[in-house]
Structures are given as C-alpha cells and as structure tokens.
C-alpha cells in the first residue's frame, strides 16, 4: 500500500513533468535535431513506465514506523526548518546553541548536558569554522551588529 501511494504521487509529478516537457518547453530557434524538450520527454515516458510497473507489482506493504516515531520525526523536521529559518536572523552561534540543545534534549540527553552540548557546538563550531577554517557563516544580524555588512556572497 505504501508503495502504491508513493508511486501514485510520483506518477502525478512525472505526468506534470512530462506535460511541461511536451507542451511548454520550446527553444525560440535551434539548429540541432534535439532541442531542450526531447530529453525530458524521453525521461518522462520511461519514468511513467517504471511507475506503472511498481503500481502493478508493489513490494512494500507498510513503512513499519510506530506512532511515537512519526511524532519524533515530525518534531525533528520542524526543528530543522526552524533552524534553517533562524540561521541568518539569529546568527550561527545562537541558532546552533538552541538547535543543538533542543535536539539533544528531545533525543534523550538530560537538560544540563544537552545545554552544554549546544553551547559547545555553537561556540567551538564558530571558533573552528570561522576563526580557523575561514568559512562563511552568518553572524547575528538581529542581535549584535545591525550595521555590519553580512552579505558575504560571492
């Protein structure tokens, strides 16, 4: 069943992919026999055949994930998105301290140790990555230096 649901969703995506390949993508002018649309067209046809094969003969019935595990996974994903969202506004150090502590706590460490782990990860991570290895990481836009130039993109 799990297989069929996933294959069904993939089928929808692939059909949309194929639809775009067959109708929308077009080069204004070209000299080559194969344009930008041909390759996606081939891929979509083969992929649809594969998906139909899976729908015909699925082999995974259940995902075997318990309810509590789903909850834990969901919480992890939410935390990851929150970490991504706050990465620039809070800066690397603060967001990493929060993320590290909360995840470690969620996965079973005691509060104190989790907090210590977060603190180490944030501060040592900053020292190692920025001060020693010279990588580009966000410093706190909101908290510390509102006027500094943090657009380190190049």
């Amino acid at each position: 069943m799990a297989d069929r649901i996933f294959a069904g969703l993939l089928l929808l995506v692939t059909l949309a992919y194929g639809f775009i390949a067959f109708t929308i993508i077009k080069a204004p002018f070209q000299y080559d026999p194969l344009g930008p649309e041909s390759w996606p067209q081939i891929l979509s046809v083969v992929a649809v055949l594969c998906i139909l094969g899976i729908l015909w003969k699925p082999d995974t019935e259940h995902l075997h994930v318990a309810g509590r595990t789903w909850f834990r996974l969901g919480a992890m994903v939410v935390l990851l998105f929150a970490y991504a969202e706050l990465y620039e506004p809070l800066g690397f150090i603060v967001s990493t301290i929060l993320f590290g502590a909360i995840v470690a706590r969620m996965l079973g460490a005691a509060w104190l140790r989790a907090g210590l782990f977060g603190l180490c990860a944030g501060v040592l991570g900053w020292v190692l990555c920025v001060e020693i290895l010279d990588l580009n990481l966000p410093d706190a836009e909101l908290l510390a230096k509102p006027y500094s130039n943090t657009e380190g993109t190049n």
Partner: peptide, 23 residues
C-alpha cells in the same frame, strides 16, 4: 546518538551555507 544526530545536522548546515550563503 543524541549528540551525534544534531552534530550531523549542524555539519550539514555549515557546509551548505558556507558555499554561497543562501538560506
């Protein structure tokens, strides 16, 4: 594992962010 798991996420974020700095 409860320290290893967040560490993987932190490493992954550091690596990806440091390429072009795009959240």
């Amino acid at each position: 594992q409860h320290y290893l798991t967040p560490l993987i996420a932190i490493l992954a974020f550091v690596g990806i962010y440091s390429i072009v700095g795009n959240p």
